[in-house]
Design a protein around this nucleic acid. Sequence first.
DNA 1: CCGTATCCGTCATGATACTG
DNA 2: CAGTATCATGACGGATACGG
Lengths: 127, 127
Amino acid sequence: MELKDKIAHSHEECTASAAAVRDALYVLSGKWKLPLIITLSAGPMRFKDIQRSLGDITPKILSKELQDLELNEFVLRKVLPTKPVTITYELTPYSGSLDKVLDELKNWGLQHRKKIKASIRRASAQG
Amino acid sequence: MELKDKIAHSHEECTASAAAVRDALYVLSGKWKLPLIITLSAGPMRFKDIQRSLGDITPKILSKELQDLELNEFVLRKVLPTKPVTITYELTPYSGSLDKVLDELKNWGLQHRKKIKASIRRASAQG
DNA sequence: CCGTATCCGTCATGATACTG
DNA sequence: CAGTATCATGACGGATACGG
């Protein structure tokens, strides 16, 4: 079955597909959301730990991204009654709904990278 | 199986996953690439037709997006020896490799929209 | 018709500094 | 530690106009 058979059945369905895909990409947009989710998949972490784990994200951006993910119910913010309070972030069960998407995206990314490398090799050989 | 079992096996694999996912999102990034692919899934089209079909994309942006997609071998540009020449754009077979990704993205986008609506209803009822 | 060139506004991201 | 505030910037998308 080809792409056009799966996606572009009619004008309306085509529009609907495009809208749904764009919804998804919108929610997952930005430089950090996916890396953040993948990082948190290791378990609950504190703000500073996440920051270190992601390398060079600034607190402002991290804060914003975490809030976004919280709003979309991918991430749960927990305040532990220690003294002073400890705050942790962890993935919600709902984040599991991204499993397939993430997996497909990962697989596709891997195979695409290989393909691009091969293309470049071919192009160089030709030139 | 949970997300953490599928994605974050080890530090290296976690990093690799994140990189692959970001590769994929990078290639598909921007406001128009997916809508463009979905539009072209109806068959070969000329520049002006695509422009009309996408609604309000400007020629500069469309040109750039088409070039990006050509580079990544999703789209083939054909120059037909009519007089004056006719130029068409069509999907390559390789674009079919996106089938699964697109499908998962579409499904996820649809279910997520439903969930968000339900959340808003719940929040309103509470407040 | 098929684009490219120029200019411009907006938004995402980031550096730095600061508060509780 | 866990953030917020302020300021800066650069990429992206778009409007308009023009060239082949």
